[in-house]
Amino acid sequence: MLDISLQIILNGISLGCAYALITLGFVLVINAIGAVNFAQGDFVMAGGFLTVVLAEFMVADNFNPIRASGVIILPLVLISMACFGFLFSMIAYKPLKNRPPVTVFISTIAMGLIIQHSINAGFGPEPQIGPALISSGTITIGTLTISKQQISIILSASFLILCVGFLMNKTQLGRKLRAASQDSEMAESIGINGPQCISITFSLAIALAGAAGLLLSNQFFVTTSDGGLYMLKAYIAVTLGGWGRLDGAVIAALAVGLFEVIMATLVSYVVAEALLFAALLLVLLFRPSGLFAEAIQRRT
């Protein structure tokens, strides 16, 4: 029983880690522009499809599983998705930056749909499977069977989260990004290029979504309709963790992943989902700024 419990907890953590990457990108954009990027889930799906394409491209001439492993593809996905993020900010945000936040979030919904339908038109509706990060096998320790992919997801996601933490807190670029997101006018008055910071934030957020797409594409496959699901999970995690809080978002995303699998095991999936939404409602009712309340200002 202990081995099963450990296996389930491991599943919850690996799922939570992937959610954390998505949520982190989500919060970065909220902090930067004060509006929600509803295309974040579709970028997770796009990252999954990009992974599939890159993996096929790498093994097209000469099959070599090492060449096609996710860990080799990950940097390519991060760079490509960062470029998409930059383009996305130019198309979906920049022309509307002086409009009310609702305009921007409608624009991101539209862009998400365009991404989804374009990929559907290009790839067809068939679900795809991405490569394993290192190996898709299992490790057996006594009676405990651990998937190598799960361990890889946890390690890769943790590494990326730490990198974001380091970037935001310990580097000059991170300080600029934070300054621009806290008060763009004041930041610009001291020589920080606000629009550039926003574009960099979009690039970072969408690179993280792409990384999550890669991590999830092997274990859970990838289909064009996946975006909405990931978006919903990120939204719940952000609401629970506190709008604008990076650490809160990561903790809440992990909690959502664990909560889902533990409750599904103890009771059922339907009850787990109902309880998750009940928790969300309670937080909105009694602590609308989230469990880890934002210290600076309330977001719209």
Partner: peptide, 17 residues
């Protein structure tokens, strides 16, 4: 018997039961 939403990705809880 257990019902799963189409969005459920992790089947291990159901398979364990």
């Amino acid at each position: 018997e257990e019902a799963l939403a189409p969005s459920v990705k992790d089947m291990l809880p159901a398979l364990t039961k």
